[in-house]
Design a protein around this nucleic acid. Structure first.
Length: 433
RNA sequence: GGCCCUAUCGUCUAAUGGCUAGGACAGCGCCCUCUCACGGCGUAAAUCGGGGUUCGACUCCCCGUAGGGUCACCA
Protein backbone atom coordinates (compact mmCIF):
# COMPACT_ATOMS: atom_id res chain seq x y z
CA UNK A 1 0.00 0.00 0.00
CA UNK A 2 1.52 3.33 -1.06
CA UNK A 3 2.07 5.77 1.75
CA UNK A 4 0.16 8.48 -0.08
CA UNK A 5 -3.17 8.10 -1.86
CA UNK A 6 -5.08 11.19 -2.92
CA UNK A 7 -8.32 11.53 -4.75
CA UNK A 8 -10.16 13.95 -6.95
CA UNK A 9 -13.90 13.56 -6.43
CA UNK A 10 -15.93 15.65 -8.85
CA UNK A 11 -19.65 15.29 -9.27
CA UNK A 12 -20.68 15.04 -12.93
CA UNK A 13 -23.14 17.90 -12.80
CA UNK A 14 -21.35 20.23 -15.17
CA UNK A 15 -18.31 20.52 -17.38
CA UNK A 16 -15.02 20.58 -15.51
CA UNK A 17 -13.84 24.17 -15.18
CA UNK A 18 -10.58 25.81 -14.18
CA UNK A 19 -11.82 26.31 -10.63
CA UNK A 20 -13.06 22.77 -10.18
CA UNK A 21 -9.91 21.15 -11.52
CA UNK A 22 -7.68 23.08 -9.14
CA UNK A 23 -8.28 20.67 -6.25
CA UNK A 24 -7.59 17.81 -8.64
CA UNK A 25 -4.33 19.34 -9.80
CA UNK A 26 -3.08 19.88 -6.26
CA UNK A 27 -4.10 16.39 -5.19
CA UNK A 28 -2.36 15.02 -8.26
CA UNK A 29 0.86 16.98 -7.75
CA UNK A 30 0.96 16.01 -4.09
CA UNK A 31 0.49 12.33 -4.87
CA UNK A 32 3.11 12.29 -7.62
CA UNK A 33 5.58 14.32 -5.58
CA UNK A 34 5.37 11.68 -2.88
CA UNK A 35 5.39 8.71 -5.21
CA UNK A 36 1.81 7.96 -4.26
CA UNK A 37 -1.41 7.09 -6.03
CA UNK A 38 -3.91 9.48 -7.56
CA UNK A 39 -7.47 8.29 -7.95
CA UNK A 40 -10.56 9.85 -9.44
CA UNK A 41 -13.96 9.17 -7.97
CA UNK A 42 -17.09 10.21 -9.75
CA UNK A 43 -19.58 11.31 -7.10
CA UNK A 44 -22.83 10.55 -8.83
CA UNK A 45 -25.12 9.76 -5.94
CA UNK A 46 -27.36 12.60 -7.03
CA UNK A 47 -29.14 10.79 -9.81
CA UNK A 48 -31.17 13.80 -10.85
CA UNK A 49 -28.27 16.07 -11.70
CA UNK A 50 -25.55 13.63 -12.73
CA UNK A 51 -25.04 13.29 -16.47
CA UNK A 52 -22.88 10.98 -18.54
CA UNK A 53 -21.79 13.81 -20.83
CA UNK A 54 -20.34 15.70 -17.87
CA UNK A 55 -18.50 12.60 -16.72
CA UNK A 56 -17.03 12.28 -20.21
CA UNK A 57 -16.04 15.91 -20.10
CA UNK A 58 -14.22 15.41 -16.78
CA UNK A 59 -12.11 12.57 -18.13
CA UNK A 60 -11.46 14.35 -21.42
CA UNK A 61 -10.21 17.42 -19.56
CA UNK A 62 -8.01 15.39 -17.23
CA UNK A 63 -6.47 13.50 -20.14
CA UNK A 64 -5.84 16.67 -22.09
CA UNK A 65 -4.04 18.23 -19.13
CA UNK A 66 -1.82 15.19 -18.91
CA UNK A 67 -3.08 14.16 -15.48
CA UNK A 68 -2.67 10.40 -15.35
CA UNK A 69 -5.01 8.46 -13.11
CA UNK A 70 -4.16 5.31 -11.17
CA UNK A 71 -7.72 4.17 -10.51
CA UNK A 72 -11.24 5.40 -11.07
CA UNK A 73 -14.35 4.76 -8.99
CA UNK A 74 -18.00 5.57 -9.33
CA UNK A 75 -20.14 6.01 -6.25
CA UNK A 76 -23.25 4.71 -7.94
CA UNK A 77 -21.54 1.30 -8.07
CA UNK A 78 -21.03 1.13 -4.32
CA UNK A 79 -24.68 0.90 -3.28
CA UNK A 80 -24.33 -2.56 -1.74
CA UNK A 81 -21.36 -1.47 0.34
CA UNK A 82 -23.18 1.60 1.63
CA UNK A 83 -26.20 -0.48 2.59
CA UNK A 84 -24.04 -3.04 4.39
CA UNK A 85 -22.42 -0.32 6.51
CA UNK A 86 -25.68 1.51 7.11
CA UNK A 87 -27.21 -1.71 8.44
CA UNK A 88 -24.18 -2.30 10.63
CA UNK A 89 -24.47 1.19 12.11
CA UNK A 90 -28.17 0.82 12.76
CA UNK A 91 -27.57 -2.49 14.49
CA UNK A 92 -25.10 -0.67 16.72
CA UNK A 93 -27.68 2.09 17.29
CA UNK A 94 -25.32 4.74 15.95
CA UNK A 95 -27.85 5.83 13.39
CA UNK A 96 -31.62 5.55 13.36
CA UNK A 97 -34.60 5.75 11.07
CA UNK A 98 -36.53 8.92 11.79
CA UNK A 99 -40.12 9.77 10.98
CA UNK A 100 -40.32 13.11 9.26
CA UNK A 101 -42.81 15.68 8.20
CA UNK A 102 -41.70 16.19 4.57
CA UNK A 103 -40.62 19.80 4.19
CA UNK A 104 -40.42 19.56 0.43
CA UNK A 105 -43.03 18.30 -2.01
CA UNK A 106 -40.97 15.20 -2.85
CA UNK A 107 -39.58 14.74 0.68
CA UNK A 108 -39.59 11.37 2.42
CA UNK A 109 -41.58 10.51 5.50
CA UNK A 110 -38.62 8.44 6.70
CA UNK A 111 -34.90 9.25 6.59
CA UNK A 112 -31.81 7.93 8.33
CA UNK A 113 -30.22 10.18 10.91
CA UNK A 114 -26.88 10.08 12.66
CA UNK A 115 -26.92 9.86 16.45
CA UNK A 116 -24.72 12.86 17.19
CA UNK A 117 -22.48 12.40 20.26
CA UNK A 118 -22.36 16.22 20.46
CA UNK A 119 -18.66 16.56 21.05
CA UNK A 120 -15.85 18.93 20.13
CA UNK A 121 -13.99 17.75 17.05
CA UNK A 122 -10.47 19.00 16.53
CA UNK A 123 -8.45 18.18 13.45
CA UNK A 124 -5.19 19.25 11.88
CA UNK A 125 -5.27 20.82 8.46
CA UNK A 126 -2.05 20.89 6.46
CA UNK A 127 -2.85 24.36 5.16
CA UNK A 128 -4.69 26.00 8.04
CA UNK A 129 -3.30 24.24 11.08
CA UNK A 130 -5.43 23.12 14.01
CA UNK A 131 -9.18 23.62 13.57
CA UNK A 132 -11.75 23.06 16.31
CA UNK A 133 -15.46 22.67 15.89
CA UNK A 134 -18.37 22.03 18.23
CA UNK A 135 -20.54 19.47 16.45
CA UNK A 136 -23.52 20.06 18.72
CA UNK A 137 -24.87 22.56 16.24
CA UNK A 138 -25.02 19.83 13.60
CA UNK A 139 -27.83 18.07 15.51
CA UNK A 140 -28.70 14.54 14.39
CA UNK A 141 -27.96 15.21 10.76
CA UNK A 142 -29.34 13.04 7.95
CA UNK A 143 -26.77 10.68 6.47
CA UNK A 144 -29.01 8.77 4.05
CA UNK A 145 -32.39 9.08 2.44
CA UNK A 146 -32.78 5.31 2.75
CA UNK A 147 -30.54 2.25 3.11
CA UNK A 148 -29.81 2.35 -0.59
CA UNK A 149 -29.58 6.11 -0.96
CA UNK A 150 -26.69 7.47 1.10
CA UNK A 151 -25.95 11.16 1.17
CA UNK A 152 -22.68 12.83 0.33
CA UNK A 153 -21.00 12.75 3.74
CA UNK A 154 -21.57 9.07 4.37
CA UNK A 155 -20.56 8.02 0.85
CA UNK A 156 -17.39 10.08 1.04
CA UNK A 157 -16.27 8.56 4.31
CA UNK A 158 -16.94 5.02 3.17
CA UNK A 159 -15.24 5.51 -0.18
CA UNK A 160 -12.17 7.26 1.15
CA UNK A 161 -11.74 4.36 3.55
CA UNK A 162 -12.36 1.58 1.03
CA UNK A 163 -10.13 3.23 -1.53
CA UNK A 164 -7.30 3.71 0.95
CA UNK A 165 -7.23 7.48 0.68
CA UNK A 166 -4.56 8.86 3.02
CA UNK A 167 -4.76 12.56 2.18
CA UNK A 168 -7.94 14.45 1.47
CA UNK A 169 -6.92 17.45 -0.62
CA UNK A 170 -9.97 19.52 -1.48
CA UNK A 171 -11.43 23.01 -1.53
CA UNK A 172 -11.80 25.15 1.55
CA UNK A 173 -15.58 25.05 1.16
CA UNK A 174 -15.30 21.59 2.72
CA UNK A 175 -13.73 22.73 5.97
CA UNK A 176 -17.06 22.90 7.72
CA UNK A 177 -18.03 19.50 6.30
CA UNK A 178 -14.99 17.88 7.83
CA UNK A 179 -16.21 17.59 11.45
CA UNK A 180 -19.32 15.66 10.49
CA UNK A 181 -17.30 13.38 8.25
CA UNK A 182 -14.96 12.74 11.15
CA UNK A 183 -17.96 11.90 13.32
CA UNK A 184 -19.03 9.30 10.75
CA UNK A 185 -15.49 7.91 10.61
CA UNK A 186 -15.49 7.49 14.38
CA UNK A 187 -18.86 5.76 14.33
CA UNK A 188 -17.55 3.39 11.66
CA UNK A 189 -14.27 2.95 13.50
CA UNK A 190 -12.18 3.85 10.47
CA UNK A 191 -8.89 5.78 10.46
CA UNK A 192 -8.91 9.51 9.88
CA UNK A 193 -7.12 10.66 6.74
CA UNK A 194 -4.93 13.76 6.73
CA UNK A 195 -6.62 16.91 5.50
CA UNK A 196 -5.49 19.80 3.33
CA UNK A 197 -8.09 22.42 2.50
CA UNK A 198 -7.15 24.59 -0.42
CA UNK A 199 -8.03 28.28 -0.66
CA UNK A 200 -10.89 28.90 -3.04
CA UNK A 201 -10.55 30.38 -6.47
CA UNK A 202 -12.77 33.42 -6.68
CA UNK A 203 -14.28 35.47 -9.48
CA UNK A 204 -13.72 39.16 -9.94
CA UNK A 205 -16.39 39.90 -7.31
CA UNK A 206 -14.45 37.81 -4.75
CA UNK A 207 -17.10 35.13 -4.45
CA UNK A 208 -16.61 31.45 -5.18
CA UNK A 209 -15.91 30.86 -8.85
CA UNK A 210 -18.88 29.29 -10.55
CA UNK A 211 -20.22 28.75 -14.00
CA UNK A 212 -22.47 31.77 -13.71
CA UNK A 213 -19.59 33.90 -12.50
CA UNK A 214 -17.49 33.27 -15.56
CA UNK A 215 -15.82 29.94 -14.89
CA UNK A 216 -14.80 28.57 -18.26
CA UNK A 217 -14.65 24.84 -18.99
CA UNK A 218 -11.22 23.32 -19.60
CA UNK A 219 -12.41 22.04 -22.95
CA UNK A 220 -13.42 25.57 -23.85
CA UNK A 221 -9.87 26.81 -23.31
CA UNK A 222 -8.71 24.08 -25.63
CA UNK A 223 -10.99 25.45 -28.32
CA UNK A 224 -9.67 28.95 -27.68
CA UNK A 225 -6.17 27.78 -28.54
CA UNK A 226 -4.68 27.34 -25.09
CA UNK A 227 -2.15 24.61 -24.45
CA UNK A 228 -2.58 22.25 -21.48
CA UNK A 229 0.86 23.12 -20.12
CA UNK A 230 -0.29 26.71 -19.55
CA UNK A 231 -3.54 25.79 -17.83
CA UNK A 232 -1.73 23.35 -15.57
CA UNK A 233 1.02 25.84 -14.77
CA UNK A 234 -1.30 28.77 -14.14
CA UNK A 235 -3.79 26.78 -12.08
CA UNK A 236 -0.96 25.45 -9.94
CA UNK A 237 0.17 28.99 -9.26
CA UNK A 238 -3.22 29.97 -7.90
CA UNK A 239 -2.78 29.49 -4.19
CA UNK A 240 0.67 27.97 -4.39
CA UNK A 241 4.11 29.21 -5.28
CA UNK A 242 7.48 27.46 -5.35
CA UNK A 243 10.56 29.09 -3.87
CA UNK A 244 12.32 31.43 -6.28
CA UNK A 245 11.13 33.70 -9.02
CA UNK A 246 10.82 31.29 -11.91
CA UNK A 247 7.25 31.07 -13.16
CA UNK A 248 7.18 28.85 -16.20
CA UNK A 249 7.11 25.25 -15.03
CA UNK A 250 6.53 21.97 -16.85
CA UNK A 251 4.35 19.30 -15.30
CA UNK A 252 7.44 17.37 -14.19
CA UNK A 253 8.93 20.46 -12.56
CA UNK A 254 5.66 21.18 -10.78
CA UNK A 255 5.65 17.64 -9.41
CA UNK A 256 9.21 18.03 -8.18
CA UNK A 257 8.54 21.35 -6.49
CA UNK A 258 5.08 20.83 -5.05
CA UNK A 259 4.72 20.80 -1.28
CA UNK A 260 1.68 21.53 0.86
CA UNK A 261 3.56 23.89 3.15
CA UNK A 262 3.78 26.48 0.36
CA UNK A 263 0.05 26.49 -0.22
CA UNK A 264 -1.55 29.87 0.38
CA UNK A 265 -4.25 30.37 3.00
CA UNK A 266 -6.22 33.13 1.30
CA UNK A 267 -8.38 32.86 -1.81
CA UNK A 268 -6.99 33.69 -5.24
CA UNK A 269 -8.65 35.48 -8.10
CA UNK A 270 -8.60 33.92 -11.53
CA UNK A 271 -6.90 36.31 -13.96
CA UNK A 272 -7.59 35.61 -17.61
CA UNK A 273 -4.86 38.01 -18.72
CA UNK A 274 -2.11 36.33 -16.79
CA UNK A 275 -3.26 32.97 -18.09
CA UNK A 276 -2.83 34.38 -21.59
CA UNK A 277 0.74 35.34 -20.73
CA UNK A 278 1.45 31.84 -19.40
CA UNK A 279 0.03 30.42 -22.62
CA UNK A 280 2.30 32.51 -24.80
CA UNK A 281 5.33 31.55 -22.73
CA UNK A 282 4.53 27.86 -23.00
CA UNK A 283 3.86 28.20 -26.71
CA UNK A 284 7.30 29.79 -27.17
CA UNK A 285 8.88 26.93 -25.22
CA UNK A 286 7.61 24.32 -27.67
CA UNK A 287 10.07 23.00 -30.26
CA UNK A 288 9.33 24.21 -33.79
CA UNK A 289 8.18 20.78 -34.89
CA UNK A 290 5.97 20.34 -31.85
CA UNK A 291 4.51 23.78 -32.38
CA UNK A 292 3.77 23.00 -36.02
CA UNK A 293 2.10 19.75 -35.04
CA UNK A 294 -0.12 21.42 -32.44
CA UNK A 295 -1.08 24.21 -34.78
CA UNK A 296 -1.82 21.75 -37.54
CA UNK A 297 -4.09 19.84 -35.18
CA UNK A 298 -5.79 23.03 -34.08
CA UNK A 299 -6.16 24.77 -37.44
CA UNK A 300 -6.67 21.58 -39.43
CA UNK A 301 -4.18 22.65 -42.05
CA UNK A 302 -0.50 22.21 -42.79
CA UNK A 303 1.86 24.81 -41.44
CA UNK A 304 4.92 25.85 -43.39
CA UNK A 305 7.90 25.28 -41.10
CA UNK A 306 9.44 28.58 -42.22
CA UNK A 307 6.60 30.42 -40.51
CA UNK A 308 6.81 28.68 -37.17
CA UNK A 309 9.42 30.87 -35.46
CA UNK A 310 7.48 33.97 -36.51
CA UNK A 311 4.17 32.54 -35.37
CA UNK A 312 5.61 31.63 -31.98
CA UNK A 313 6.59 35.21 -31.30
CA UNK A 314 3.49 36.70 -32.79
CA UNK A 315 0.59 34.68 -31.38
CA UNK A 316 -0.40 34.20 -27.76
CA UNK A 317 -2.79 31.37 -28.57
CA UNK A 318 -3.07 28.75 -31.28
CA UNK A 319 -6.25 30.49 -32.32
CA UNK A 320 -4.35 33.72 -32.93
CA UNK A 321 -1.75 31.77 -34.85
CA UNK A 322 -4.42 30.12 -36.99
CA UNK A 323 -5.89 33.53 -37.71
CA UNK A 324 -2.50 34.96 -38.66
CA UNK A 325 -2.06 32.08 -41.07
CA UNK A 326 -5.17 33.28 -42.88
CA UNK A 327 -4.18 36.89 -42.64
CA UNK A 328 -0.81 38.59 -42.30
CA UNK A 329 1.18 35.37 -42.56
CA UNK A 330 -0.58 34.18 -45.69
CA UNK A 331 2.00 35.30 -48.22
CA UNK A 332 3.80 32.13 -49.26
CA UNK A 333 1.27 31.11 -51.89
CA UNK A 334 0.28 33.31 -54.80
CA UNK A 335 -0.54 36.89 -53.91
CA UNK A 336 -2.75 39.47 -55.54
CA UNK A 337 -0.99 42.80 -55.96
CA UNK A 338 -3.04 45.87 -55.44
CA UNK A 339 -1.35 49.07 -56.55
CA UNK A 340 -3.12 51.04 -53.84
CA UNK A 341 -1.52 48.82 -51.20
CA UNK A 342 1.88 49.24 -52.79
CA UNK A 343 1.46 53.00 -52.62
CA UNK A 344 0.27 52.99 -49.03
CA UNK A 345 -3.16 54.27 -50.01
CA UNK A 346 -1.78 57.06 -52.17
CA UNK A 347 0.90 58.39 -49.82
CA UNK A 348 3.58 57.24 -52.22
CA UNK A 349 3.56 57.99 -55.95
CA UNK A 350 3.85 55.17 -58.45
CA UNK A 351 7.00 56.72 -59.84
CA UNK A 352 8.77 56.85 -56.50
CA UNK A 353 7.75 53.31 -55.59
CA UNK A 354 8.82 52.06 -58.97
CA UNK A 355 12.25 53.67 -58.78
CA UNK A 356 12.93 52.33 -55.31
CA UNK A 357 11.84 48.84 -56.19
CA UNK A 358 14.13 48.86 -59.21
CA UNK A 359 17.08 49.98 -57.13
CA UNK A 360 16.32 47.46 -54.41
CA UNK A 361 16.12 44.76 -57.00
CA UNK A 362 19.61 45.66 -58.22
CA UNK A 363 21.01 45.67 -54.73
CA UNK A 364 19.44 42.32 -53.91
CA UNK A 365 20.70 40.89 -57.16
CA UNK A 366 24.23 41.28 -55.91
CA UNK A 367 23.69 39.62 -52.55
CA UNK A 368 24.61 35.93 -52.53
CA UNK A 369 21.97 33.40 -51.44
CA UNK A 370 23.73 32.90 -48.10
CA UNK A 371 23.33 36.58 -47.42
CA UNK A 372 19.56 36.32 -47.32
CA UNK A 373 19.21 36.40 -43.57
CA UNK A 374 17.07 39.07 -41.91
CA UNK A 375 20.05 40.59 -40.12
CA UNK A 376 22.35 40.78 -43.14
CA UNK A 377 19.61 42.07 -45.40
CA UNK A 378 18.82 44.78 -42.96
CA UNK A 379 22.48 45.78 -42.71
CA UNK A 380 22.65 46.17 -46.46
CA UNK A 381 19.29 47.79 -47.18
CA UNK A 382 19.06 49.99 -44.13
CA UNK A 383 21.46 52.75 -45.24
CA UNK A 384 19.64 53.11 -48.55
CA UNK A 385 16.22 53.16 -46.90
CA UNK A 386 17.36 55.69 -44.32
CA UNK A 387 18.85 57.88 -46.98
CA UNK A 388 15.81 57.79 -49.27
CA UNK A 389 13.10 57.75 -46.64
CA UNK A 390 12.28 54.49 -44.92
CA UNK A 391 8.55 54.65 -45.53
CA UNK A 392 8.89 55.21 -49.24
CA UNK A 393 11.43 52.45 -49.66
CA UNK A 394 10.41 49.76 -47.25
CA UNK A 395 6.64 49.94 -47.51
CA UNK A 396 6.50 49.17 -51.24
CA UNK A 397 9.09 46.43 -50.78
CA UNK A 398 7.13 44.81 -47.99
CA UNK A 399 3.88 44.92 -49.94
CA UNK A 400 5.56 43.71 -53.12
CA UNK A 401 6.69 40.64 -51.22
CA UNK A 402 3.56 40.01 -49.16
CA UNK A 403 0.75 41.63 -51.11
CA UNK A 404 -0.66 42.63 -47.75
CA UNK A 405 -1.18 45.64 -45.59
CA UNK A 406 0.05 43.69 -42.57
CA UNK A 407 2.90 41.23 -42.71
CA UNK A 408 6.25 40.42 -41.15
CA UNK A 409 9.01 42.94 -41.86
CA UNK A 410 10.56 43.09 -45.38
CA UNK A 411 13.91 41.62 -44.33
CA UNK A 412 12.24 38.60 -42.85
CA UNK A 413 10.08 38.29 -45.94
CA UNK A 414 13.11 38.33 -48.25
CA UNK A 415 14.78 35.74 -46.10
CA UNK A 416 11.82 33.38 -46.06
CA UNK A 417 11.05 33.77 -49.73
CA UNK A 418 14.66 33.36 -50.84
CA UNK A 419 16.52 35.34 -53.45
CA UNK A 420 14.82 34.02 -56.59
CA UNK A 421 11.28 34.41 -55.33
CA UNK A 422 12.05 37.82 -53.86
CA UNK A 423 13.29 39.15 -57.18
CA UNK A 424 10.41 37.56 -59.01
CA UNK A 425 7.85 39.21 -56.75
CA UNK A 426 9.49 42.60 -57.08
CA UNK A 427 9.38 42.22 -60.84
CA UNK A 428 5.70 41.34 -60.73
CA UNK A 429 4.96 44.33 -58.54
CA UNK A 430 6.77 46.63 -60.95
CA UNK A 431 4.49 45.50 -63.75
CA UNK A 432 1.48 46.67 -61.75
CA UNK A 433 2.80 50.16 -61.27
C1' G B 1 -27.65 35.49 12.15
C1' G B 2 -24.54 30.92 14.47
C1' C B 3 -20.08 28.50 13.40
C1' C B 4 -15.54 28.34 10.53
C1' C B 5 -11.68 30.43 7.40
C1' U B 6 -8.90 34.61 5.58
C1' A B 7 -6.37 39.68 5.31
C1' U B 8 1.26 42.43 1.52
C1' C B 9 1.02 46.71 -4.86
C1' G B 10 -5.31 46.56 -9.27
C1' U B 11 -4.18 40.85 -9.69
C1' C B 12 -0.95 36.33 -8.48
C1' U B 13 2.74 36.31 -4.92
C1' A B 14 8.19 36.70 -2.10
C1' A B 15 10.07 38.04 2.52
C1' U B 16 8.43 32.28 8.33
C1' G B 17 11.46 38.79 14.32
C1' G B 18 16.29 42.47 11.66
C1' C B 19 15.34 44.17 3.60
C1' U B 20 15.64 50.69 0.44
C1' A B 21 9.12 45.29 1.59
C1' G B 22 11.41 41.67 -3.94
C1' G B 23 9.28 39.37 -8.56
C1' A B 24 5.47 38.46 -12.31
C1' C B 25 0.83 39.98 -15.02
C1' A B 26 -1.89 44.20 -16.08
C1' G B 27 -1.19 49.89 -16.25
C1' C B 28 1.73 54.11 -17.59
C1' G B 29 6.20 56.31 -20.14
C1' C B 30 10.27 55.87 -23.45
C1' C B 31 12.85 53.03 -27.16
C1' C B 32 12.50 49.77 -31.47
C1' U B 33 9.71 50.72 -36.11
C1' C B 34 7.94 50.25 -43.11
C1' U B 35 2.61 47.64 -41.25
C1' C B 36 0.43 44.33 -37.31
C1' A B 37 2.47 42.09 -33.41
C1' C B 38 6.61 40.75 -30.53
C1' G B 39 10.53 42.75 -27.88
C1' G B 40 13.94 46.09 -24.75
C1' C B 41 14.34 49.77 -20.91
C1' G B 42 12.12 52.52 -17.17
C1' U B 43 8.06 54.10 -13.83
C1' A B 44 4.09 54.17 -10.46
C1' A B 45 1.73 50.89 -7.04
C1' A B 46 1.02 47.23 -0.97
C1' U B 47 1.94 45.20 4.66
C1' C B 48 -6.79 46.73 6.73
C1' G B 49 -7.24 49.63 11.77
C1' G B 50 -6.11 49.70 17.05
C1' G B 51 -3.70 47.69 21.08
C1' G B 52 0.03 44.61 23.07
C1' U B 53 4.89 41.14 23.27
C1' U B 54 9.97 42.53 21.82
C1' C B 55 15.96 46.15 21.46
C1' G B 56 13.21 45.36 16.87
C1' A B 57 7.42 43.50 13.90
C1' C B 58 4.54 42.11 7.23
C1' U B 59 5.94 38.13 10.42
C1' C B 60 3.76 36.36 17.32
C1' C B 61 -0.90 37.49 20.69
C1' C B 62 -5.66 40.14 21.52
C1' C B 63 -9.71 43.28 19.90
C1' G B 64 -12.06 45.51 15.98
C1' U B 65 -13.14 45.93 10.68
C1' A B 66 -13.73 43.82 6.00
C1' G B 67 -14.25 39.74 2.73
C1' G B 68 -15.36 34.70 1.96
C1' G B 69 -17.19 29.72 3.22
C1' U B 70 -20.84 26.79 5.55
C1' C B 71 -25.27 25.91 8.02
C1' A B 72 -30.07 20.71 2.29
C1' C B 73 -33.85 14.47 2.12
C1' C B 74 -26.88 18.76 -3.44
C1' A B 75 -22.08 17.39 -3.88
Amino acid sequence: MPKVVTRFAPSPTGNLNVGGIRAGIFAYLFARHNGGKFIVRIEDTDKERSKKEFEDNIFESLAWLGIDIDATYRQSKHAARYEELLRKLIAEDKIYVAKEEPKEPDGRSEVIRFRNPNKIISFFDAVHGQIEFDTTELKDFIIAKSFTEPLFHFAVVVDDWDEGVTHVVRGEDHISNTPRQILIQEALGVPRPKYAHLPLIVSSDRSKLSKRKGAVAITEYKKLGYVPEAILNYDSFLGWHPAGEKEIYSKEELITEFTLDRVQKSPAMFDETKLLWFNHEHLKKLSDSEYAARLKEFAQKDVDPRLVPLLKEHAKTLKEAAKALEDEFDFLGGIAYKPEFLLQGGKITAEVASNHLKTLSEILQNIPDEGFTPAQLKDILWPYATDQGRGEVLWPLRVALSGREKSPDPFTLCSILGKAETLERIAQALQKL
